[in-house]
Design a binder for these strands. Sequence first.
DNA 1: CTGAAAGCGCTTACAG
DNA 2: CTGAAAGCGCTTACAG
Lengths: 354, 354
Amino acid sequence: MRNKEREELVGIKEIARRANVSIGTVDRAIHNRPGVAKKTREHVLQIVSELDYQPNLLAQRLATRKTLRIATLIPIGSAETSFWQAPLQGIEQARTELSQHGIVIDPYFYDQDSIGSFVEKTGIILQSEPDGILLAPSFIEESVSFSRTCKRLNIPYVLIDSDLPNNESLNYTGPDLFDSGYLSAHLASYLVQPEDKILIVNISREIDGHHHLLKKEDGFRTYFDKQQTAPAIRKIDIRKTDVESIDNCLSEEFRDTTGIKVVFVTNSRVSTVARYLEKTEKKVLLIGYDYIAENLAYLKKGMIDFLICQKPVEQAYRGIIALYQYLAYGIVPPPKEFMPIDIVTRTNFHVYRN
Amino acid sequence: MRNKEREELVGIKEIARRANVSIGTVDRAIHNRPGVAKKTREHVLQIVSELDYQPNLLAQRLATRKTLRIATLIPIGSAETSFWQAPLQGIEQARTELSQHGIVIDPYFYDQDSIGSFVEKTGIILQSEPDGILLAPSFIEESVSFSRTCKRLNIPYVLIDSDLPNNESLNYTGPDLFDSGYLSAHLASYLVQPEDKILIVNISREIDGHHHLLKKEDGFRTYFDKQQTAPAIRKIDIRKTDVESIDNCLSEEFRDTTGIKVVFVTNSRVSTVARYLEKTEKKVLLIGYDYIAENLAYLKKGMIDFLICQKPVEQAYRGIIALYQYLAYGIVPPPKEFMPIDIVTRTNFHVYRN
DNA sequence: CTGAAAGCGCTTACAG
DNA sequence: CTGAAAGCGCTTACAG
């Protein structure tokens, strides 16, 4: 490394000199802090824009002895699916990076099978008076109500993983579910002949009218609706998530229907379907969701053909960064930040970044 | 935002107090600067490790009035392919971000069709005595020789886009070409029946023994070598890149060979093949490389089925960040950083991040 | 409404 | 070999 003078960038000192005021006044003018005469402020801002002054972010954060506190609320990882480890990893990554910058992140978790736990945690978070909140919502009604409260209390919040109806969050960083279903159908279209059948499988304890899974199904069906020729599409909703129930439902379907060539599972539970197909030695192609250990095992074996993945680690990481940038520097993020729709196979999973 | 005291992190002041020395001495000890008694140094470092002291990076860079200068050398974008705009974009992104941190980035370009231009630019770069270099190599021999010079002059350098044989760079951030060919074959395997044929197309002015394209071809073939049944694989090398030459070669091949179901083009020139197939109304599936405007046009139309992409923007961005971290903080990056192998289709290109 | 001064956590001449 | 002090570019009480 050679020593070299940093080229002379304008700082608040230079602005103060030109405006014939003190640096304190410049600071107040720039940040719209109270106690500056209108005329002075305008004069200073004039010079600021003339010189295209860019504040030194490092010095700014160094001088601001303020801790920003961000609360995160996501489902707790369960034995049934390790999916929620990924967002947590993204949170931890952001935490590590931002701890340098005087940001404290407090992670909270709720049980996806318990509305009560969700409501309880939102209460605790509100009491802690955080500067910002990151939320991965599950229970729509309660989440909407929570977001309204945040709005009222003037606490900015961002969403990840799935969006909320009429969402007014600072930002949503996550998948467009319809599009991912649409892409899955496009992939499936390469795998079938006109006479083949496709089976859509939804596995979830609650599959109501708004459910995420239905948006994916909708995208999937829409793709084929647009084609001149399309394979027959069957679908089953499995409302219990234990192995036995899933096996039973699938057995029934495969007994009644012949010619199923492709199975599309609308969430990360695709591994349970793969298990069934392996056990019963069915030769069908399988498309599902999410880069989690359970699924990767079957992907490697060739029992799962395609996994659609949407970078849950990065979703959480980006969500927090968006919040941080807003809180620290007032940078307003775009309202929607849709994640790429990644196709993971047994030949590229080894370099995938979740 | 609420005001809140930042929790008391240990700084060099606290260490100085405990060690009964001045903060200057602490600084010297921590950074192995000369002029500290061995005993003093050890004592200080002892306390440093006891307290698990983490330096404040912001303060560090603020106090270091040093400009780090990074030179980048990549091919210039040509009329024939817009590919090199992407790495340039990554460089610009890094430049914008790092300008805050006292880093200056000087981009240089060479003509991919002119060894002379490459050699000339490396000379200019060396004369400018940069603190670090990022290189996207094309001419293997000259690049190796340049990298040796950097080594000798003690200028750290990183590579992107393609690796060099026996590479001793600080870091390589880019694709594993073999793997991307392997993945392409895996995709192709879903698209063919045993009786179908696959055509590999290499288009490049120079296809010598080490060429990148051959590594992809190798990966592609290796996939099918491992299968029990495999389609027949044909291949053509097109050594001229004008439209007419390409059309002629393809015409010849399609005249002589029937039953070609899938065409695999080993680089970004896949759009020229798509053009030909469209014009001659051939109904084959097409796999190629790179997220560039020319290709996207055919992807949208359905003339290209899959584009393999490896985030060239991010490659350049990450390469520079790796260099920066090394120069500024002595963080040694992993020697190889392989990019994900992304599959882009007409149903997910709209959310792809290059 | 404004300025002078202290301080954020470091680095770096300078003096001894 | 070591310490005291100035300074990086900001923010923020404090005083007037």
